[in-house]
Design a protein around this nucleic acid. Structure first.
Length: 876
RNA sequence: GCCCGCGUGGCGGAACUGGUAUACGCGACGGACUUAAAAUCCGUUGGCCUAACGGCCAUGGGAGUUCAAGUCUCCCCGCGGGCACCA
């Protein structure tokens, strides 16, 4: 009797063997072309989840496939190890963030190893290790020297109870997630990377990223948000209540109210329809006015209180407050526009001030109706009459001809835009501008568990970079999380240092870097993970760019855009010679599962529920009926999770890997199902049995291993064709990331072989070839079982050393083809013809067919369309 | 609101450049093995009509282009994602 498939045993055996051989380290001496496969490295949160299993399985298929195709493959793994959860664990459980992180890494490394991934673990890096972040600090200083890092004031979410800055996701409905206190906005001095300097280039270069999904390129393009328009100046006149500035002056210093107001617009053509100006509550002029005017101060404060979440309540309402100032229209003598502070004007976009043209912008219209401001249409649609064109409650934003606009009357929007900009320029009142939505990247975080920013603040010298010889600026280990706020702030011994420039007492910057900085260059560090400098030219030139990057679409914008910026910044500082870090990108879908809730709406784990005899769901514990919710991405909070470790324990890594690749296209979400994983398990069992039966001499088929009888009673030409078609098909599928189709094809070939085998007089040589091809095609997906079975079939040959199989052209061609015959577009019959038939032969064969004749029913044939090898269509 | 993407059996999904719709898997049903169950194996399985041959209808809905449409065009409906007072 053959032994049963014991996944656990063979997986442990082969994993140990691969590790001992160092099978997955790239060969430095190799003459082969390089291929760098990378999956987004995980945050060490505790245990791996199904999303990781899916992501890393896909990457492993690519890595193993490319290796078989003769590439020298680099496939490393590391840890995105800084971040907030480690600090939360410290506060909740009193465990040090470093200890917590490294213990999670140990667990997850063990779990990943149990998946049998072809990773080069020698290159493992953790971003929280000083050996990693010392280089990041060096590059920070380089960026500082190159003018790519700078300091400015910026707003943060401030939790007044915990005395800490909150990330956006920690603000829930305007309140701190932990304290529940109403979150305030505070202005802090912070570090920024000048990503906007590359806005145009980052946008333009998207076109060259041909192996990126269009979706991601589009999202980045929208994020950069290029718009063209004009900046223009409105001279200001003081309000009736006096206060600020009397007459305008065109000076650039002095009080804001004395300067002309600078606004940005994408519609300079609508200038004659302007009926008000509006400032952001955070505009310098607003702040200045607020000093004298408590109402403005209160309004601005109210706007600032309105955190990101709570605006849902007041969403629709556009509100503002009249400043009393008036702005002079640049072209209309005597027209004065009221200047408001308005909640819908953003300080971070354009100039933080606008002119409102209610007729052609919905927000402006809503605002104008509320405050009873004039609505002057200046663009008239082609099908309307200029004289009686009016705006009701819908702004008109489409094309048309200019009206009510003096020298612009009669022009189209485009010409009007050009004309008005020329006039503004001539008058020194404005100019054409390109504006970007993209903002500079704020990297300061008021946190402990991150890369320290290597500068010192000296009361005499200002901001002084840390001496390069003193790097790394290490995080102190002896920190306490008992007091609110950033532990680095209260760690006096660490914080207080002499100024590197003058030696006077000074303070370290106690902020740490955004963890996106860590992940913006780790792929480069993998090329020379232990080098004394951030990267070595030789290694990055050899390996970069990453040929295939794989990860979740949730990183479509920030991580991928920051990395693209970082590569350019590193280039400017002389580290690399390329711009784009990732030549190919694939974004995989999530792993989803149904959700379950009991009568009290409490979330239940899948193992806490079972089906009842009526087709519903009940709890295992009490039999209480369970509400089955829609299937959503697995998450701890909804408890709709399945632990990969348990799955690998009971079915083995190969089964888990196979299921991750079957059924669903990789870019779409995958629905987890117990029956699906069982199906994958069943298939591997079948494959195991087929090979075992073949090698067992007692199988009753009289087949000795290694010496199959050349019994040609059933020659199996069709099977050979099927084999080679499978090779061609699977190869094509893998090239295109169609893993689910590749799996389906291999299963189909397995079915055909099995049918062939059920014939008592099958050709064993062909059968053996089929089995071997299946193992070779399947080994990137399920490497353990394939290696084991291969060894049983071919003990002298190493499957690992086998090149990827090539399909032989002669088997891809059929001698004859079966052509469908349609009559008036409906299939009525099929005819068999030699594959090299000509049109005439197909036509006469089709017309001679009985079924076709019946369908024609004696009517006249008007036309016969023949696409040789494809179809015949008889038109009557 | 704007911008993308997707709608195919009971379910996940195949279908290359328009050319035999429903590959492969799951589930279901029937059978074999078993004292029985599990596991395994074999067979059937889009819907409707028919004893059968065969026919009709089906790719969210409606139109159009074409000898031929799941595939191309337009409109509508539904679902999902991204961005969001972006001037």
């Amino acid at each position: 009797m053959s032994e049963r498939y014991n996944a656990k045993e063979i997986e442990a055996k082969w994993q140990a063997s691969w590790e001992a051989e160092g099978a997955y380290q790239p060969d430095p001496e190799s003459e082969q072309p390089k291929y760098y496969v990378l999956e987004m490295f995980p945050y060490p949160s505790g245990k791996i989840h199904m999303g990781h299993v899916r992501n890393y399985t896909m990457g492993d298929v690519v890595a193993r496939y490319k290796r078989a195709r003769g590439y020298n493959v680099l496939h490393p793994m590391g840890w995105d190890a800084f971040g907030l959860p480690a600090e939360n664990a410290a506060m909740e459980r009193g465990v040090h963030p470093g200890e917590w992180t490294y213990s999670n890494i140990a667990t997850m490394r063990r779990q990943l190893k149990s998946m049998g991934l072809s990773l080069d673990w020698e290159r493992e890096i953790a971003t929280c290790h000083p050996g990693y972040y010392v280089h990041q600090q060096r590059m920070f200083l380089d960026f500082l020297e190159a003018g790519l890092a700078y300091r400015k004031e910026s707003w943060v979410n401030w939790d007044p109870v915990d005395n800490t800055v909150l990330a956006n996701e920690q603000v829930i409905e305007g309140r701190g997630w932990r304290s529940g206190a109403v979150v305030e906005k505070r202005l802090l001095s912070q570090w920024f990377f000048r990503i906007t300097e590359y806005a145009e280039e980052l946008l333009q270069a998207l076109d060259g990223l041909e192996r990126w999904p269009d979706k991601v390129r589009l999202m980045q393009s929208n994020w950069i948000g290029r718009s063209t328009g004009a900046r223009l100046f409105f001279p200001l006149i003081g309000g009736e209540d006096g206060g600020v500035g009397a007459e305008i002056v065109g000076e650039n210093d002095g009080p804001e109210a004395a300067k002309p107001l600078e606004v940005y617009t994408t519609r300079p053509d609508t200038l004659f329809g302007a009926s008000f100006c509006a400032l952001s509550p955070n505009h310098p002029l607003s702040a200045e006015l607020a000093v004298e005017n408590p109402a403005i101060a209160a309004f601005a404060e109210q706007c600032n209180l309105l955190g990101t979440g709570e605006e849902a309540v007041e969403k629709a309402e556009k509100i503002g407050i009249d400043t009393g100032l008036r702005a002079r229209h640049p072209f209309i003598e005597g027209r004065e526009l009221p200047v408001y502070v308005a909640n819908f004007v953003l300080m971070d976009y354009g100039t933080g001030a606008i002119f409102g043209c209610p007729a052609h912008d919905q927000r402006d219209l809503d605002f104008a109706r509320k405050y009873e401001l004039p609505v002057i249409p200046v663009v008239c649609p082609a099908d309307s009459n200029a004289a009686d064109f009016e705006i009701a409650n819908l702004a008109y934003t489409d094309d048309g001809k200019l009206i009510n606009s003096d020298f612009l009357d009669g022009l189209g929007i485009e010409e009007a835009t050009e004309t008005v900009i020329k006039r503004l320029q001539a008058a020194g009142l404005g100019e054409a501008t390109i504006n970007y939505r993209l903002r500079d990247w704020g990297i300061s975080r008021q946190r402990y568990w991150g890369c320290p920013i290597p500068v010192v603040h000296c009361s005499d010298c200002g901001v002084v970079p840390a001496a390069r010889d003193d790097l790394p600026v290490r995080l102190p280990d002896d920190v306490s999380f008992d007091a609110p706020g950033n532990p680095l702030d209260s760690h006096v011994a660490w914080r207080d240092v002499p100024c590197p420039a003058c030696g006077a007492p000074a303070r370290r910057d106690t902020d740490t870097m955004d963890t996106f900085v860590d992940s913006s260059w780790y792929y480069a560090r993998f090329c020379s993970p232990r080098a004394d400098e951030p990267v070595t030219a030789e290694d990055v030139n050899a390996w970069l760019p990453v040929d295939q990057y794989i990860g979740g679409v949730e990183h479509a914008v920030l991580h991928l855009l920051y990395s693209r910026f970082f590569m350019r910044a590193m280039k400017r500082c002389g580290y690399v010679t390329i711009d784009e870090p990732f030549a190919g990108l694939f974004t995989q879908g999530m792993v989803c599962h149904e959700t379950y809730q009991d009568g009290d709406d409490k979330w239940l784990y899948p193992e806490e529920v079972k089906g009842d005899d009526k087709g519903g769901m009940v709890t295992v514990a009490s039999g209480e009926s369970v509400h089955v919710g829609r299937s959503v991405s697995m998450s701890k909070s909804k408890r709709n999770v399945v632990d990969p470790e348990e799955i690998i324990d009971s079915y083995g890594a190969d089964t888990a890997r196979l299921f991750m690749l079957s059924d669903s296209p990789p870019e779409r979400d995958l629905e987890w199902s117990d029956t699906g994983i069982k199906g994958a398990w069943r298939y591997l069992g079948t494959l195991w049995r087929m090979v075992s039966e073949f090698t067992d001499s007692d199988s009753g088929e009289n087949v000795a291993p290694g010496a199959p009888a050349a019994d040609a009673a059933v020659p199996g030409e069709n099977v050979q064709r099927a084999i080679h078609q499978a090779v061609a098909g699977v190869t094509q599928d893998l090239e295109k990331f169609h893993f689910n189709r590749a799996v389906a094809r291999i299963r189909q070939l397995t079915n055909e072989l099995s049918d062939f085998r059920s014939n008592k007089a099958f050709n064993t040589e062909v059968y053996l070839e089929g089995l071997k091809i299946i193992l070779r095609l399947l080994t990137p997906m399920t490497p353990h079982i394939c290696t084991e079975l291969w060894q049983r079939l071919e003990p002298q040959q190493s499957l690992f050393a086998m090149p990827w199989p090539e399909a032989e052209a002669r088997y891809l061609q059929e001698d004859s083809v079966i052509l469908p015959v349609q009559v008036n577009g409906k299939k009525r019959a099929t005819i068999e013809l030699p594959s090299n038939h000509d049109k005439a032969a197909a036509e006469s064969a089709a017309l001679a067919d009985e079924g076709v004749q019946r369908a024609i029913a004696g009517k006249a044939v008007r036309k016969v369309i023949v696409v040789p090898g494809k179809i015949v269509n008889v038109v009557i």
